[in-house]
């Protein structure tokens, strides 16, 4: 069992900061990876009444008995209020305008909140290839508020992504609207292991708060463009004892996400 007295890691700060953005009673579209643990932390703390929806046609009934390793983890078979088709969640809830917020992970994010999970380099002959959209493009296209959660690494923050898998504000809010996306949709926040970002009137990412142990300069150096800083930028509140305890002992006691145990990195996998 992890020690609650130990100081929070940057990843734990990221998870807690993102969870605090979730309002009780809201309807969430939850993507795979960080969104899973973030949404379950919120549901275990201040937002027990959130509705958690997954892209394959899942609405959870409770915090599952083991933390899902992805949004299709078979633990959903005994934790759901509804198991159906992708049309149930991505279709009639998200496209139908019934979702309040979408949570997404990303390989990279740019100045206007556009997300790339497709490729590095030219699409026709990519240097590096990722898995592709999944439901991410649907989340970013249709959700009123998209929250993007990812580990901070300068390479993940280019000025312009090589491929827009999931539209943010494209080249600005007006461009997003001209593309036909509804005006009350788009990125709301980016939460990383360095800080919390929101978007200004033009749809550009702005540093709103930084991790207590990180300077503003470090965050500025962590992206590949001249990052805007909010005039009231402040340090984030570190996780409370309760937040940290629930996260470590209740939500992810095996460290599947917190210590990356689901990758079986340290063990030889014998099959």
């Amino acid at each position: 069992m992890p020690d609650t007295k130990e100081k929070e890691t940057p990843i734990e700060q990221m998870i807690v900061s993102a969870a605090r953005l979730i309002t009780d009673g809201s309807v969430l579209m939850v993507g795979t990876q960080w969104p899973i643990i973030v949404s379950l932390l919120a549901k275990s703390l201040h937002a027990p009444g959130v509705t958690i929806c997954y892209e394959g046609g899942v609405i959870l009934a409770k915090v599952p008995d083991r933390i899902p390793l992805f949004t299709a983890d078979p633990v959903i078979n005994s934790s759901s209020a509804l198991l159906g088709n992708s049309f149930d969640t991505l279709g009639m809830i998200l496209h139908g305008g019934r979702a309040d917020m979408a949570l997404l992970s990303a390989a990279s994010v740019d100045r206007y909140g556009n997300i790339n999970t497709t490729c590095i380099g030219d699409y026709r002959s990519p240097k590096i290839r990722f898995g592709g959209s999944g439901g991410a493009c649907d989340f970013g296209s249709l959700a009123p508020k998209t929250v993007i959660i990812l580990e901070h690494d300068r390479r993940r923050f280019p000025e312009q992504v090589d491929f827009i898998t999931t539209p943010g504000y494209l080249k600005g809010k007006d461009v997003r609207m001209r593309a036909g996306l509804r005006p009350d949709t788009g990125p709301y926040a980016v939460v990383t292991s360095l800080g919390l970002f929101h978007f200004d009137e033009q749809g550009e990412m702005v540093l709103r708060a930084h991790n207590p142990d990180v300077s503003i300069k470090e965050v500025k150096d962590g992206v590949q463009w001249d990052l805007k800083i909010h005039r009231d930028v402040r340090p984030l509140d570190p996780p409370s004892k309760k937040e940290l305890r629930v996260l470590r002992e209740q939500v992810d006691p095996d460290g599947m996400y917190l210590r990356d145990a689901r990758r079986f990195d340290e063990k030889e996998v014998a099959v």
């Binding site: 496209h95 497709t118 030219d122 493009c137 296209s141 249709l142 827009i164 539209p167 593309a179």
Partner: peptide
Amino acid sequence: ATKTLLGSGFDWEQTDSGV
């Protein structure tokens, strides 16, 4: 007809993604 995919790299009319 749908409102998803608009503005993304799959939207060849709006982006020069090569798709």
